[in-house]
Design a protein around this nucleic acid. Sequence first.
DNA 1: AATTAAATTTCGCCT
DNA 2: AGGCGAAGTTTAATT
Lengths: 259, 259
Amino acid sequence: MPKPSIVLVDPNVAETEKPINEALAQHRTLLVVGNCWVHYVGRAKSKLEAGERILIIKQDGSLLVHRSTGYEPVNWQPPGCVFNGKVKDGLLEITAIRKKPHESVRIFFDRIQMLSALNLVDAGEFSLYASEEDMQKAILLRPSFVEEGFKPASYEKKVEPGFVDVYGMDKEGNLVVVEIKRKTASKEAVLQLAKYIDAIKSRADRRVRGILAAPSIARDVQRLLETLGLEYKQVDPKKCADTLHKAETKKLLEFSEES
Amino acid sequence: MPKPSIVLVDPNVAETEKPINEALAQHRTLLVVGNCWVHYVGRAKSKLEAGERILIIKQDGSLLVHRSTGYEPVNWQPPGCVFNGKVKDGLLEITAIRKKPHESVRIFFDRIQMLSALNLVDAGEFSLYASEEDMQKAILLRPSFVEEGFKPASYEKKVEPGFVDVYGMDKEGNLVVVEIKRKTASKEAVLQLAKYIDAIKSRADRRVRGILAAPSIARDVQRLLETLGLEYKQVDPKKCADTLHKAETKKLLEFSEES
DNA sequence: AATTAAATTTCGCCT
DNA sequence: AGGCGAAGTTTAATT
């Protein structure tokens, strides 16, 4: 039976110790806004001077300290920390300790504008569309996105430097390696594809074609691509997402008709 | 003259429209906790079903939606967004729009546990120690970290593929190229060093040694390194940071004695 | 403005 | 558990 949320506005620092440690013990989400400074020692080492920030401690043991600007937290810890809060001499000190790698974040508050201990109930599903994985699935489903007559044979095939996105054969019987990028193809993508081609060519008995499938490509990158004897095929991630979506809807329909 | 912070606990959704738009207009930091769902369209596309989350909108136009677990936000926008909040049919809809690339995040709240509009005052400085740059400075200051008798000649020297971290001479008069890594040396670091060495060897009149200075190196990477005729020297970033710190303290002392 | 490299990257997947 | 590659990566530096 979860206790309801607690919100304290402008509390004395001293009176926050108990609710904070209760919230931490119950693995609730903790939200603290106030004037603080932060010491971090671990993979690196940092010091943040005093200022007003937002501290978030989540139930999985992750920690975020956010300043008034910027997408990224100024200090943080990934999930799995152990926390402790204590008040001494009018200061609230919150310590987060992680092992492997061993590191710690210590936050000192001398004034707290708001403290909140929350019970966040969240079972909602998150779906991301048009990821590189979606594009891969869509190409396997509709190989003509790459080329008419293309026949995929395998995907995520192990080829020495790493993994090939899609691997198959064109209508002339040549081997085809497809490298997929969700956005504008970079030089790195071209070089990666070239590496795969080289590795496969060395032990193939026929011609090996490399196709870079991406929504766009820069002029100079395309030149590099052509110099290396590779090809480019424009593929729209949105269209891939739509194709996938329709396929999945159809599958669901068939399933419900069967049952 | 900044207005003080506002905190509303369990407000009706309808009554949040005005304070939210005021806070957005005044570029205050907005904190909303409540039950919401999120649609994102832009570089990719995502959908997040209903659940209780924390929304942060910062004064620089960045946006974060945090779930009850995880270091990373489930949805976000980097700084520079334009926001709008409106209430309709008992729902609060907050829209964030970014141009270049054009994308949008729409958040719908049907229940709000807490709303807070903050004026965060934060002029504190953030310092990170033991960066790669710090290690470079420390090696220039104390070349014996690389090797007894090593004499640095230059740093960030242009050598065709890019820049060499530290460049100098050993006590036998051989050229020495030092590549610095703040953490475990990767295969990429070894190959990069090899490229520099090749470039320099081609126009040098004496032996050229390549030393990879890093806190650690994987067994197989070390094998590759040795195959390429390069060397590894263990260097501790923390020790570098300490050396630097002491040097800077000393410098400050000398300065205050002079004046 | 575009490109490249680094990050206390984190995260996921596979060996 | 360690290693490798991808990310709606972001961010800073450099061309």
